[in-house]
């Protein structure tokens, strides 16, 4: 029985990735493949953000900084010392984890909007530093990675290679997320999100658990950053660490369903293709128009369906069950 239950739980995950693999065979057009990769990538980034932002309710608006740390760490190791990005991933994780521990521990004293503001400022400081530290990062000119396809270099001749890499990234993030969610840590993080004082009174070391969530979330975001750098093959502070990118990770989780396993994935599937198509269609009409519409959708969705789509669906299911009962 227990075994069947476990299988039942992982069924959506297996089904989802089966569909993704089938899609990877169907989608051949370069533009669509790019959208596919970005969707998987953003789904992974937003899910990583969700661990601290959704489960623990700590609304970080500075996660692009961790993506930037990951991208710069692996790129610099590769360009300057010829270190394989696979080892770069490990270095990225270590640095991102250390930075997040350093910044998070004190910032968790802050709550709600204040926490969000402090992380927004943190992200901006990191971006400004990346811009200023020209000797290391080449400043706003950015760094280009020469294209030398091989698995060891994390570069693929065929775009579909990136599709699979993005898929693996998302799978890793989702497995870690679901493990956390279905464990003591997940329950504790939820309790912290809902009411920190009550959580403490129930024996939860709230600072420790928030730190834990933050470090895992930042590490995964840094891994995403490495992938991003070796997919785009060019990194610069404003393309990588802009607060708009942080906001996007957050927004996807909020639209899909904050603190749910699948919410960020649903959010990414909706937002990325939508914004990419809008960019393609409306980009010709005039600069910025697609973002006006994007912003309007954001405002309307946030106001009208604050629980996110996943929760909206759950509410409907619950109501149906009530009527039946």
């Amino acid at each position: 029985m227990e075994f069947l239950k476990q299988r039942g739980k992982s069924f959506p995950m297996v089904a989802f990735f089966a569909v993704m693999i089938i899609l990877s065979f169907i989608i051949k057009n370069g533009f669509y493949q790019h959208i596919f990769i970005l969707t998987l990538f953003y789904a992974g980034m937003s899910s990583a953000w969700n661990i601290v932002g959704g489960y623990a309710g700590q609304l970080s608006l500075g996660h692009a900084a961790y993506m930037g740390i990951g991208a710069y760490t692996a790129t610099l190791l590769y360009l300057k010392m010829g270190v394989s990005p696979w080892i770069g991933i490990i270095a990225a994780i270590i640095i991102a984890a250390a930075v997040s521990a350093l910044i998070s521990y004190p910032s968790f004293k802050l709550h709600g909007t204040f926490f969000a503001m402090s992380t927004l400022a943190f992200g901006e400081v990191m971006r400004i530093i990346a811009n200023y530290w020209r000797g290391l990062t080449n400043g706003s000119v950015g760094l280009s990675i020469p294209f030398k396809p091989s698995l060891a270099h994390l570069m693929f001749e065929e775009r579909v290679g990136y599709v699979y890499f993005a898929m693996i990234f998302l799978a890793v993030v989702l497995v870690i997320s679901s493990r956390i969610k279905e464990s003591r840590a997940g329950y504790y993080l939820n309790a912290i999100r809902e009411n920190e004082i009550a959580a403490r009174s129930l024996g939860i070391n709230t600072s420790l658990y928030k730190l834990y969530a933050s470090v895992i979330s930042a590490s995964l975001a840094a891994v995403g950053g490495v992938f991003y750098a070796f997919y785009i093959l060019y990194i610069d502070p404003s393309g990588l660490m802009d607060s708009a990118i942080s906001i996007q990770f957050t927004l996807m989780a909020i639209i899909g369903g904050l603190g749910t396993l699948w919410g960020p994935v649903v959010g990414a599937i909706l937002i990325i293709p939508l914004s990419e198509f809008m960019r393609a269609w409306l980009g010709g009409v005039g600069q910025g128009l697609h973002l006006v519409i994007y912003g309007l959708i954001m405002v309307v969705v946030v106001i009208v369906s604050p629980g996110g789509l996943i929760n909206g669906y759950k509410v409907i299911i619950r109501k149906i069950k009530k009527i039946k009962a």
């Binding site: 464990s183 003591r184 329950y187 504790y188 939820n190 309790a191 009550a198 024996g203």
Partner: peptide, 21 residues
């Protein structure tokens, strides 16, 4: 905890003594 079920609310308490969910 408003967005947790009644059972999960209490489970948060139990986890202090029984770490396995």
């Amino acid at each position: 905890f408003p967005d947790l079920t009644v059972l999960d609310n209490v489970a948060v308490g139990s986890l202090a003594r029984y770490p396995r969910l």
